[in-house]
Design a protein around this nucleic acid. Sequence first.
RNA 1: GGUAGGAUACCGAAGCGGUCAAACGGGGCGGACUGUAAAUCCGCUGGCUUAGCCUUCACAGGUUCGAAUCCUGUUCCUACCA
Length: 426
Amino acid sequence: MGIIEELEWRGLISDCTDREGLAQRLAKGAVTLYCGFDPTADSLHVGSLVPLLALRRFQQFGHKPIVIAGGATGSIGDPSGKSAERQLLTHEQLKANIEGVKKQLASFLDFDSEANAALLVDNADWTAPLSFLDVLRDVGKHFKVNAMVAKESVRARMENRDVGISFTEFSYMILQALDFDHLYKQNECELQIGGSDQWGNITAGIDLIHRRQNRQAYGLTMPLITNSDGTKFGKTEAGAVWLDVARTSIYQFYQYWVRVDDRDVVRYLNFFTFLHPDEIEALARQHAEQPHARVAHKALAREVTVLVHGEEAASEVIRASEILFGGSLDGITEATFREIAGEVPTHEVALDRFGGEGLWLPELLHEAGLAQSRGQSRKDIKGGGVYVNSSRVDDDQHKLKTGDLLFGKYLLLRRGKRNYAVVLAG
RNA sequence: GGUAGGAUACCGAAGCGGUCAAACGGGGCGGACUGUAAAUCCGCUGGCUUAGCCUUCACAGGUUCGAAUCCUGUUCCUACCA
């Protein structure tokens, strides 16, 4: 199976500028390809994983991937798929974002390979030195505004008079085309991949290469991921699911994948893991036969978590999850509890508040962030949705005393099915 | 600039002097059922140690025993006209 067949099998191909031509070219030998990531935040989120992992898939097949951290394009803002003009990032923000994103991008590819080491570059390096006049003369001449205006995202913005589109964002595709042109010249980079919203930007680059260098380049896009239930992929109520642990804890990250809708789990195994098609088929079968066993979900969550956060961290959160969802805390060791404490929001409370009368549970629940008010806490308790150290408490007058603390300092609070907080008395 | 209409809780939307912390729907949360799912059913959804009290219906004032409801002014929206 070649890379194209593999991507095809996984449902990762949305569109290709010249499918047969590309397949033939790939069959002939190693190809250099690239994908750009604009630093719109200081971390990537799970949505960026698809193209990023695709680069890695290509690398596994012996091709040479280039990742662009978009210092130049990121300073402009891609209008693709955006219904309104974006706020420009400040230079400091952009710099911080690039720092954060670069580290993440680097962790998914092999930069030490002898034959096909990956490359990480910043498009500001070749774009920033250009003068406005040079760009207008050497690049702008190759773009017909007529064609640029026809691009879907541009047209939508132009038709909406209230929103409009600035010249800055309108020019975005020129910058991205320039990247492709540059990489073709410098690195023999013949293929650009990206999400399907990048189609217009990619073909613009191919055209530019054809005009300036009279050479053939290829474009391949991947589908945008959609959840079957109509919600946005990669979003939770708390916001996007990020790759940075400071934004999304490893536990939350793992949980996001465990909770994927049944209808999506097999697709996501294809999209986000490197499991062999045979393994995925086996998981799909198990899932169909015994959906309640959730084998596929756990495999998905484990694979992706290992990929992003490493083997060790993944094992830890899996253990923590087993305990949190397994019920009883009987026989738990302090070490295991510390692991859980690391993955669940922790709230510190002065030890002496557990003395005397004790600490009123609704107050603690509210303080620990599990309820919006003490009144709400009381309602939740009466509704039977509150647990202390894994046993239900249904008395809204319940007081917690020193004796309730595990190992003399911990308390595990839970509201509902999956909202936990650890209280640390000290 | 003129005329008409509107602003209600997370969102949509009733209410048009007292029985309004405010119908109804959506969303959210909790429970039952489960598989950390879907569907279904039940409860909660301003605050408060809650038969009660306190603060809310764009904002500021006023009328009244009593105002989300009536009056005045301000701000912001929407439609039609210029």
